[in-house]
Design a protein around this nucleic acid. Structure first.
Lengths: 152, 152
DNA sequence: TATTTATTGTAGAAAAATCTACATGATACA
DNA sequence: TGTATCATGTAGATTTTTCTACAATAAATA
């Protein structure tokens, strides 16, 4: 039994996430990347799922639909993605695609971030990381089952 | 090596933390607790470290000093804590103490939260949790060593 | 054909989180 | 004694995040 909330796993997660977020922000600022951390996440998603639709993207990054739209707007204004009408099965959707400039930026930022993640992996041992990530999935599953969570 | 940032441990942490945060918010709302999640965290810290000073508290919860002051203001307005001048070694500081009403609320909320944390523990196995928490500490340590992080 | 549903764009407002700045009182120290 | 430092209180502004709302378009369906 854990005595205090601030020593519990959920709170430790919160703290760690905040620190990691701060580290990220600091890196993006220091390196003067032309995108934000959130925008990078979107580029990463698009590079994995080239055919993802906006609603799915929103679910994936756990942001609201409108909010996600804003990120996309910003990315498009910067010329890093394009939104073009396309067929998705029978439905018409806006296909999100990374532009060549977007891909450049994405690769540049990725490279930098990979360096840090690799360093982390060297410290932490890959098997444990695998276990950890599985646990994180469990925790999320648990939360979704027991609480009313939606991210609209 | 992890191929994509959104599959990496740092990002998984971020996602999980967001979900947990949402779950928390949902619980506090549903149960109509008279404090917010952040305020609960502060009560928890105070119950562990009754002699903590504001600056240390701020560091502990990873918020800025002024921001922390605001939380304390709110808690004091609600009558859940008191701030009284006191000696801290040779220095004069404001001693933060939980009022009886504050303690009641803290206990009530704790009890509810413990139920959920216990449930999580049943699913996750205590040894693994220990390992996980240690890893989280490592990750934070890593971040502090490699980035310029301060939370002012 | 008329209505409903799905996907998206985008503005505006609101809420939450954070930062900057200044002030106070007291001790430390040069 | 004068200056620096520490811990604090608190206002105001800014930034970030999120939500609400409305509009448009096209496909599904009744």
């Amino acid at each position: 039994m854990v005595e205090h909330y601030t020593k519990s796993l959920p709170y430790e997660l919160e703290l760690t996430s905040r620190v990691v977020h701060e580290a990220s922000t600091s890196l993006f600022k220091q390196k003067n990347f032309p995108i934000t951390h959130d925008e990078f996440v979107i580029l990463d998603c698009l590079s994995i799922y080239p055919d993802i639709i906006q609603i799915e993207l929103a679910k994936m990054i756990l942001k609201g639909r409108a909010h996600t739209g804003r990120f996309l707007m910003a990315l498009e204004e910067k010329g890093f993605i394009k939104r073009t009408p396309a067929k998705h099965g029978t439905k018409l959707i806006m296909k999100l695609s990374i532009t060549p400039e977007g891909l450049n930026v994405y690769k540049k930022v990725s490279k930098e971030i990979d360096r840090h993640i690799d360093a982390l992996h060297e410290r932490l041992n890959m098997d444990k990381i695998r276990i950890l990530i599985d646990m994180l999935h469990d925790i999320r599953k648990d939360a979704y089952e027991n609480f009313d969570i939606d991210f609209k």
